[in-house]
Write a protein that binds this DNA or RNA. Structure first.
Length: 155
DNA sequence: AATAGGGTCAACCGCTAATCT
DNA sequence: CAGATTAGCGGTTGACCCTAT
């Protein structure tokens, strides 16, 4: 059988977000806060699935993201973190305030992985930089792929 | 000047894991 | 306790740009 769209995508909008949709989403979250993604689009009046709203907010609309060009220092940090953590983009993002996992993943795939050899050369030849890994965070999230975040330890 | 080709990046999908009932 | 529900992750896609021809 033809594969059905994952949720009930029937009648729901997909693809790139318009400025108007962004405005509706940002305004709704400003009033009601984050979370409750499943019911959010209905309440806010968006023809999107909750997943789409969550992704748009987390990766683009929240002012926690700064979305500038990656600096040389950030390049360096990403390469080093990736060497240690592998494709754990969410963990890597935890060490880079203002950057999202999606953004870092994209950047890695588009730019850094292509240039990894020259980067490696630079790093071994150049001055050493030390990075600090938060082991507690690391073990807590050790090898997960996906899955809901544990409820913040309160209760 | 027009367009084919390649690179970027926003967003989707399938799946996993925590929580709810 | 088990099945249903929902949040979150990482791989992947494809629409949109930029450049070379």
């Amino acid at each position: 059988m033809g594969r059905a769209p994952c949720c009930q995508k029937v009648g729901l909008k997909r693809g790139r977000w318009t400025a108007e949709e962004d405005h509706i989403l940002a305004k709704y979250i400003a009033r009601h806060g984050e979370g409750l993604w499943r019911s959010l689009p209905k309440n806010a009046g968006l023809l999107r699935c909750g997943k789409s709203c969550r992704l748009r907010w987390l990766n683009y609309l929240t002012d926690k993201v700064r979305r500038g060009k990656f600096s040389r220092e950030e390049d360096d940090l990403i390469v080093k973190l990736h060497a240690t953590l592998g494709n754990r983009w969410s963990l890597i993002a935890n060490h880079m305030p203002g950057r999202t996992d999606n953004e870092i993943k994209n950047y890695w795939n588009a730019h850094l992985s292509r240039q990894i050899h020259s980067f490696r050369h630079t790093y071994t030849a150049g001055n050493e930089t030390t990075i600090t890994i938060d082991i507690n965070r690391l073990s807590a999230a050790s090898k997960r792929r996906g899955g809901r975040a544990p409820r913040s330890s309160t209760k």
